[in-house]
Design a protein around this nucleic acid. Sequence first.
DNA 1: CACAGAATCGACAGAGTGTCGAATATCGCC
DNA 2: GGCGATATTCGACACTCTGTCGATTCTGTG
Lengths: 208, 208
Amino acid sequence: MASVKTPVRRRAGQSKGDQREAQILEATRALLTDRGVNDLTIDDIAGAAGISRTTFYFYFPTKQAVVMALLEGLWDQFGATYQWFESSGPDATGLHEHHRLVAEVWRDHQSILRCTTGALDYEPLVEWTERAHERFVTGLAAKIERDQAAGAAPLGVTPRALAEIVSELRDKRFPDLAARSGKSFEQGLEDLTEVVLRIVYGTVAQPR
Amino acid sequence: MASVKTPVRRRAGQSKGDQREAQILEATRALLTDRGVNDLTIDDIAGAAGISRTTFYFYFPTKQAVVMALLEGLWDQFGATYQWFESSGPDATGLHEHHRLVAEVWRDHQSILRCTTGALDYEPLVEWTERAHERFVTGLAAKIERDQAAGAAPLGVTPRALAEIVSELRDKRFPDLAARSGKSFEQGLEDLTEVVLRIVYGTVAQPR
DNA sequence: CACAGAATCGACAGAGTGTCGAATATCGCC
DNA sequence: GGCGATATTCGACACTCTGTCGATTCTGTG
């Protein structure tokens, strides 16, 4: 399911077309682990999915539309990590856990998520990224607002501005983190958490 | 001067070829203000420079090589802003000034600098970005190291890790800032400065 | 079993890219 | 003031990808 724009309405049930769509999605996901979207040709995808290039166009209008469909499937996974927004004050433990969850989504799907970075001029992709950004910023800004009001976070920079900055930092950090593992990964998580706390609360959690 | 890889050795003095090269550089710079690199065709550039497409190839191997040459010219401009690294402790004023200078370079040349972000798989461009990143990180890490040793900055996160994070933040922020102006620009500068200080020194400069 | 809609694909028509080799312009020098 | 060596320019090709059409083959259902 979830092609961005189904070219034609299909019959009910698990039609052959649904299978094909799934094959294309899967083939793309697989190919993406080796190469970036820009290096992928529609012919590659079609070939890997066992169909002709023209048939590909029956299911998706462009390569990017496939990536978009793949991305759509990750939307909820990120949403599920946002419960940290509900907390009050720094909540270092919760934040750390949140970071771990997000980093894991990134690690498992970095090949797809990286497509959002890669200068795509494909409108839907850009929009997805902005939507994700906005969702995060709104949520975090609200939390900061509450914490500032409660005196738990210092004033001086608006909640929105802080949230934007944290969001941008994450956009760079998580791809980075996704490439690490073991000790380095854990350390990266801790550093990120500490830095976000410093940004939002101005406090130093572990002076040593 | 400064083509990445001169196809053929030219004669001394301001040869016709040097002019052409300058024309190509200028034409590209101009076209880039409207469209991104990926939207630009070599034919567009050649046309704007008043030469045929094939002639373009005599001077540069690819579009990206032109961008690369343009970028090379900005290297020193950034280097000139790094004197802040020499200071001791927070030096909020110096940092703010540094940010202003960098933001101005970005503002004046954003069309070129944006090319580094735009998912270019062109090796030299990636390398330029990494070189720039490394130069900044090394410089900042050294300063943080000194400040930590002097007790002016809190421990808990290594200088290198902090510098990496600040660098990544800047990579996202400056393009943003470059698009703003007036009040919003100034505010953005101040926020960035405050946040960097919080990250590195854990202090809150202006509680209100 | 007939037929509407689903699915598939071959053949075309671009748009860009990059390369070759032939033609032309220019410079340094005798 | 003319010649040979380079520098410069470009037209013609060969390729790779993309996207569209229309014809053809399935397939489920009445």
